[in-house]
Nucleic acid binder design. Structure first.
Lengths: 205, 205
DNA sequence: ATCATTATTTGCCAAATGGCAAATGATAGT
DNA sequence: ACTATCATTTGCCATTTGGCAAATAATGAT
């Protein structure tokens, strides 16, 4: 890709792309040409607080990378309660895997908790990257495996702890996010009521 | 591989290998030659109840496939309580991923809950399979991704439910295992005390 | 700045779960 | 069949958490 093409990136956009490649290159190597090809498929997306990145009942059609902000994945359990399954913050990939891979309707919402800036790839472009870039699939596999293991390791221990310990663990994992996420979402993530969480917060200080 | 080589398999062993390939072939295709090569690397392993498949503080050196029995993965939390993270039953792959992949000491035990029959591959053989069989890595990746997603989907919902609902969900997922797993292990998996679980069982009938 | 709306905190009491110890039941080895 | 050992159940009471409603605080729109 000719250098000229770079000219149309805004300064901020270049910084975002850099964050994306910093992330990707932790999982494998790419040459300049491959990176440029990936960059050529990238689009930016701004999500306002509470907007959906993907929705239950619909097919996930894009892969995203968060450069700014926090998303959450949530669903409704059979009592009709809205449950936050997990949060995803800056410098992480976001994709509703099951839905995106198999082109089936999702059962979860992916929603912006705060205003978000993202880099996104359409399904078509993403598949093209997979077919074109040798080794890209291996990198993607590693990224996804790591993310899945992280989800297991983060959520699973909550089951066996009392409410206060759950909150303390939450703060360890998302220290910079605690103050940007509404109490109600954290409560549902931790499996406690809002009022309990409010009391826990009071007792901790 | 010549047919003759098959002759040394016991009848039961062939049935086990068939179970293994039934499992594998759900995730991708292999030709006869590839399957024979895989089979040539397979060993059987019998684990008695409470024996360890892999241990915390050690490096996981094999990949297993359970043909009979139930394993559990457990660890000790910072209160010294033994927590069962999950159960793995018949016709599933068992590997302590983090430890096996990166050759680092594990922080979890993988232990037989009942007497188990397994098919196992040494680290060396497993890597050889990955290098030799085209497409094997893709199959393995699918198997592992699915297993990880399953772990998330099974354990995560427990956080937001009360003890009785947790147990009902557990029974849905492991209907055939409920009666083979000691109450204490189930209790620690669900994050409730043994006595509470005992009372829950009484109340359900 | 003011109001309307939403988020969080608090009080009160009920329900669920834990902690501990004893009783009962199940199992394996001799 | 008989212990010894381990697993499960049960009773009693303390603690934690939930449910509901009202009070207070924070936020956003005008």
């Amino acid at each position: 890709m000719p250098n000229g093409k770079r000219a149309k990136f805004s300064f901020k956009y270049i910084a975002d792309m850099e964050a994306l490649f910093n992330f990707i290159l932790k999982f494998g190597n790419l040459n300049r040409q491959q990176m440029d090809f990936i960059a050529s498929k990238a689009k930016t997306l701004t999500l306002h607080k509470e907007a959906y990145f993907s929705e239950a009942g619909k097919i996930a059609r894009q892969v995203g990378f968060i450069t700014e902000g926090i998303l959450r994945v949530c669903y409704y359990n059979n009592k009709g309660e809205e449950i936050t399954k997990y949060f995803i913050d800056e410098n992480n990939l976001v994709v509703d895997l099951e839905s995106f891979d198999n082109e089936i309707c999702s059962s979860a919402y992916v929603q912006a908790v705060t205003d978000c800036k993202m880099i996104v790839f359409s399904r078509k472009d993403w598949l093209e990257l997979l077919q074109t870039i040798v080794g890209w699939d291996a990198i993607v596999h590693k990224i996804i495996s790591r993310a899945l293991m992280q989800k297991v390791e983060r959520r699973s221990p909550l089951v066996s702890e009392d409410a206060t310990t759950r909150y303390l663990k939450f703060m360890e994992i998302y220290p910079s996010a605690v103050n940007r996420i509404p109490l109600a979402y954290i409560a549902s993530y931790l499996g406690v009521t809002q009022s309990s969480l409010s009391r826990i917060r009071k007792n901790i200080r």
